[in-house]
């Protein structure tokens, strides 16, 4: 139990995908303008990460058995993209309300590097199946946390008239993201 907890905590705070490993920056900067959409995106990422890990971990066993582990990246991309598309269709048919909440974000993250990163990291770190799933969950929650924190800061920046003109828009967003990332460095060595 202790291992799972430490994996979860490490993924959320210490090895936060966005703020410590710099994966998945694109949705982090793109969808964090409003709190609603950032929460939707974060939840969709958790969903896809766990799902992708659940699918790719067994596939890696097969690849290893056939001695073609070097095809990992391309196979994972294919599998994740196809899986997410498939799940999107199923959701649209059977759970329209969930599709309405996540649907817009699902195609955006089909081949997101953070999702692929989780799957490959799980293999590289030698996690077993439940550990890999917890790792993916933690990575997703970490992403959600980063998104929510950042969207809050961005909405404050948006309303603040104190941002100098040359800094308005993207520059101040980048600077804020960098400072937020620095703040998360403080968790280093926690786990």
């Amino acid at each position: 139990m202790g291992t799972y907890f430490s994996i979860l905590l490490a993924m959320i705070l210490v090895n936060n995908y966005v703020l410590a490993q710099f994966l998945g920056i694109c949705p982090f900067l793109g969808v964090s303008k409003k709190l609603d959409s950032s929460v939707g995106m974060g939840v969709a990422v958790i969903f896809v990460m766990v799902l992708a890990t659940a699918a790719t971990w067994p596939i890696m066993r097969i690849l290893n058995a056939w001695n073609i582990a070097y095809l990992q990246t391309i196979v994972f991309i294919l599998v994740i993209a196809a899986l997410v598309q498939f799940v999107e269709m199923v959701l649209k048919k059977f759970i329209p309300s969930l599709h309405k909440a996540l649907g817009v974000y699902l195609p955006l993250i089909t081949t997101n590097c953070a999702v692929l990163g989780v799957c490959i990291n799980n293999i590289d770190l030698g996690y077993n199946y439940p550990q890999a799933l917890v790792n993916a969950l933690g990575a997703g929650i970490g992403f959600l946390l980063a998104m929510v924190i950042f969207s809050g800061m961005r909405s404050r920046l948006e309303n603040s008239p104190n941002v100098p003109k040359p800094f308005q828009g993207v520059p101040i967003t980048m600077t804020t993201a960098a400072i937020l990332s620095l703040a998360f460095m403080g968790f280093g060595g926690l786990v």
Partner: peptide, 20 residues
């Protein structure tokens, strides 16, 4: 292998898009 994988996924997704 990759072509076969791609083909399988394409077929599955096509069928799924009709079924769902």
């Amino acid at each position: 292998l990759v072509v076969a994988l791609g083909f399988i996924f394409a077929v599955v997704l096509t069928i799924a898009s009709k079924v769902f």
